[in-house]
């Protein structure tokens, strides 16, 4: 059974169409890369999965249940989320940030969860636990954001251009760390990026979006075979050799 199923999703903002009847499935253990230019609707689609955005038409099913029927707060607590600028809470330490979701869920050993997830993203808790976000580099901050997203052990992880603001070297390190982490935790992920190369690297499946619709959908490895039209253009732009 697909862990996430999107059926005929539609969304407009005034006269702008953000989603124009999108249907997609993400199987447990997969990582879907949503690729597209700004305004293609990829972020809107991502935010509809944990109800940060409510659809005008169509529906989203998570673990077989329509999200409309679920309480948004508890739905969000069960899904990890990482955004481009990290969004760490500036007056909380790394450990407090990483322990956020276990604490929201009222888990007994919230900081224990936080420490383990800092460990999992390669930030030794002894060194980093008591640091504040502004004392970290950009790459370290994104790792804390990932640690925060996975601390409560969610089965789904949503990532909105998580490495978009990093420099090239830090970025490739972060990508490697994410790939390793996803393998070890076995988490299902949706990964939004405008960089097809990155998507091919970190995702198992790829959906290329254009103007609110899915222009192309394929397993990452097969993408080279479908390299026609818009996908070819994107491939060319990204300069990736498949």
């Amino acid at each position: 059974m697909a862990l996430i199923r999107i059926e005929g999703a539609e969304k407009r903002y005034g006269s702008t169409v953000a989603l124009d009847g999108v249907s997609l499935r993400v199987e447990a253990g997969d990582c879907l890369g949503l690729v597209g230019e700004s305004g293609s609707g990829k972020t809107t689609l991502l935010r509809s999965i944990n109800r940060l955005t409510d659809l005008d038409a169509g529906r989203v099913l998570v673990r077989g249940e329509s999200v409309d029927t679920l309480d948004p707060v508890s739905l969000r607590r069960s899904i990890g989320y990482v955004q481009q600028d990290g969004g760490l809470i500036p007056h909380w330490t790394c450990l407090a940030n990483a322990s956020l979701v276990p604490r929201l869920l009222g888990r007994g050993d919230a900081t224990g969860h936080g420490r383990r997830s800092l460990e999992a993203v390669g930030l030794g808790p002894d060194t980093f636990a008591d640091r504040y976000p502004r004392e970290l580099s950009g790459g370290q901050r994104q790792r804390v954001a990932i640690a925060r997203a996975i601390a409560a052990g969610p089965d789904i992880l949503l990532m909105d251009e998580p490495f978009g603001a990093l420099d090239a070297i830090t970025r490739s390190e972060a990508q490697e760390a994410f790939i390793a982490l996803r393998k070890s935790e076995g988490v299902t992920a949706v990964f939004v990026t405008h960089d097809l190369g990155e998507a091919v690297l970190v995702a198992t499946h790829i959906a290329v979006m254009r103007a609110g619709g899915v222009a192309l959908e394929a397993p990452a490895r097969e993408l080279a075979d479908s390299a026609t039209g818009y996908a070819a253009e994107l491939l060319e732009k990204s300069g990736v050799a498949l």
Binding site: R77, Q83, I89, L158
Partner: peptide
């Protein structure tokens, strides 16, 4: 810190929690 507020909301903080744990401090 609007970005921290956005992330907090996305991770399941209630509006009240966002207010008294992030915004007011």
């Amino acid at each position: 810190a609007p970005e921290a507020v956005g992330a907090g909301r996305a991770l399941g903080m209630t509006e009240w929690q966002l207010l008294h744990r992030i915004r007011l401090p």
